[in-house]
Write a protein that binds this DNA or RNA. Structure first.
Lengths: 131, 131
DNA sequence: GTTCGTGCAAACGGTTTGCAACAAT
DNA sequence: ATTGTTGCAAACCGTTTGCACGAAC
């Protein structure tokens, strides 16, 4: 349950936070703050943008979300906090997750004088018409 | 020469554009617009931020620069427009280029239903003390 | 003289913050 | 009582734009 997930992360599950969590932690669409606001605002018309921003920041600090900088105009949020890659559809702007095992990245360890703690592949292109 | 590079790209080489070009096209530091402004402003105190932003936009359209979205707070610019990867130093925030051939990325073609037109690896970590 | 480039100031848009009211412990 | 949370409005900051002046063709 979402409430337990918040409590486990050390977050008090208020009504606003639950509404935000239910949308953003279950989304695969990598929403931005204003998209979260719009979605939550429908069911919770009194919520403010400040609460949305505060909550997204809190969720990020508590490792329930990761910020992505794949769009040039706004930060988007990813509830998939495990290692994975990203595909950016250049036609629609949509971001799709690519599972970690689908791509091999080799010779990272050979980079001299760099301790690589993390990495990801960012792909750009378009979805193919599936036959 | 820088002026010829601008002309070749179809850009009239004004004094302001030359000053900006000399700084940003030769930089390996991935500067942001305000860093470009500060640097150029020293030698060219009458320049405006509008001109810097307009010029960086123009250079980007003319393929002399690429915008990078590796920092969470601002756009940075890369005069290296050939394929390469990026290493983000998590201590200093500095961005370093990784030459294309230093890393192998495999099985991109196997991704079903995706036409990958471009990709890059983004690495995060710290520089090792070299012995 | 018409197009292009510059610089100032204002506007814009995403995000953060100050603060007063309120809820939870 | 004290601490944490919300929502409003204002502030903030990187970036863009409107516009008038001037330069280049």
């Amino acid at each position: 349950m979402i409430a337990e997930q918040l409590i486990t992360a050390g977050i008090r599950p208020t009504a606003q936070r639950l509404a935000i969590a239910e949308f953003v932690l279950r989304s695969t669409a990598h929403p931005s703050a204003d998209e979260v606001f719009d979605a939550v605002n429908e069911k919770f018309p009194t919520i403010s943008t400040a609460t949305v921003y505060n909550t997204l920041k809190l969720f990020t600090e508590k490792q329930l979300l990761k910020q992505l900088h794949l769009r040039d105009d706004r930060i988007i949020y990813d509830p998939n906090v495990t290692r994975h890659h990203h595909f950016v559809d250049v036609e629609t702007g949509e971001i799709h997750d690519i599972e970690w095992g689908a791509i091999d990245v080799c010779r990272i360890q050979e980079l001299s004088n760099l301790d690589v703690e993390d990495y990801e592949v960012v792909l750009r292109g378009r979805r193919r018409e599936s036959e």
